[in-house]
């Protein structure tokens, strides 16, 4: 297992080197900071979303769910649409980026907490009910967004559209720093939970018997998931184009194949590395080799959709 993790790390290093070095024209003085910022944002998002997905799949005991079913992406696009609607395209463009970032992170984290808090109080803290509620909420948010988008000016609609997909092309260094400030502590906490997550994966009753309270473990993991997803989405935009995001799904499915272990001390780094390789490698191919301006997420959605079907059909166990 350790060998495979080292192999993955080496692969990622190569991908990063190619991304920085390939097709470098002009002065390095300008090129390097520009590309390094993009690379750093990809790594941050790759690690953040992959770790969030692993946590989410562990606490829901489900391999085909990703945190995006909770409606985070939908909330992001709705906030965006409402802002453009109220302030107009120009007004939106002149908003300070840091303010927007803070609003998005706070909004998404609060949404996640609210969902969880309500369910803890009302129902019996049933995690499946939480997921389903999030799913319905996502549909509601998307409907509201669509309704608003029908009423705004076509030019402004174009603007909303262009930022509704994750893009790594225009990342502000100050936002990157802010995002890292939020993401890195959350990652450290997730790593600290690795042994507890192993036990939580055994099911509620067995985990309780081993002295690990499933409720508090799930609550802590959920807070981390909210923060990680929110920080990534606020940095580059939603990774999904409206449906469920398949990025996390691809990453965890691959990680399970590359390092077949249920231990989170292996699964977490393996998923994080895989996520980064997909993002950096994919972006290199799209940007440098094919010279395309299509956002990478569109391709990820396509591949992910196919993989999702394969997983569903191939799944042996219910």
């Amino acid at each position: 297992m350790a060998k495979r993790l080292i192999l993955l790390s080496a692969l990622l290093l190569v991908a990063c080197a190619i991304y920085i070095g390939l097709g470098a024209e002009g002065a390095w003085r300008f090129l390097l900071p520009y590309r390094a910022t993009k690379l750093a944002s990809m790594l941050l998002v790759g690690i953040g979303l992959s770790v969030a997905t692993v946590l989410f799949q562990t606490i829901t005991a489900n391999r085909i769910l990703t945190p995006s079913v909770m409606g985070f992406d939908a909330l992001y696009v709705m906030v965006l649409t409402v802002l453009v609607h109220v302030l107009g395209g120009v007004g939106y463009a002149s908003l300070p980026a840091a303010l927007l970032f803070a609003m998005n992170v706070a909004g998404m984290t609060v949404l996640g907490m609210l969902l969880f808090g309500l369910l803890q109080k009302g129902a019996r803290g049933d995690i499946m009910r939480l997921v389903l509620t999030g799913l319905i909420l996502g549909i509601l948010l998307r409907s509201v967004t669509e309704f608003l988008q029908r009423m705004i000016d076509p030019a402004e609609f174009q603007m909303v559209q262009s930022v509704s997909f994750a893009r790594f092309t225009q990342v502000e260094p100050s936002l990157l720093a802010l995002s890292a400030l939020v993401t890195l502590p959350a990652l450290a906490l997730a790593w600290g939970m690795r042994n507890r997550l192993d036990v939580l994966g055994l099911g509620d009753a067995t985990a309780t018997g081993l002295g690990e309270n499933p409720k508090s473990g799930q609550a802590q993991a959920l807070v981390l998931i909210c923060i990680l997803v929110a920080a990534s989405t606020a940095l580059v935009g939603p990774m999904s184009g409206g449906g469920g995001s398949f990025f996390g799904l691809i990453v965890t499915a691959l990680a399970h194949v590359i390092t077949p272990s249920e231990r989170h001390r292996i699964l977490l780094p393996s998923a994080a590395l895989t996520g980064c390789i997909i993002l950096v490698g994919g972006q290199t191919v799209m940007e440098r080799l094919l010279d395309l301006t299509t956002p990478l997420t569109v391709v990820i959605e396509l591949i992910g959709g196919i993989l999702f079907l394969v997983l569903l059909v191939k799944r042996k166990r219910a």
């Binding site: 005991a61 994966g201 055994l202 099911g203 009753a205 309780t208 018997g209 081993l210 249920e262 166990r317």
Partner: peptide, 23 residues
Amino acid sequence: CSDRDLARVLAIMAQSTHVSARL
């Protein structure tokens, strides 16, 4: 009492022993 302390005194085997993780 804390769950940890109890887990060193009392072991349980629940009715459903389904584990979703592949162990």
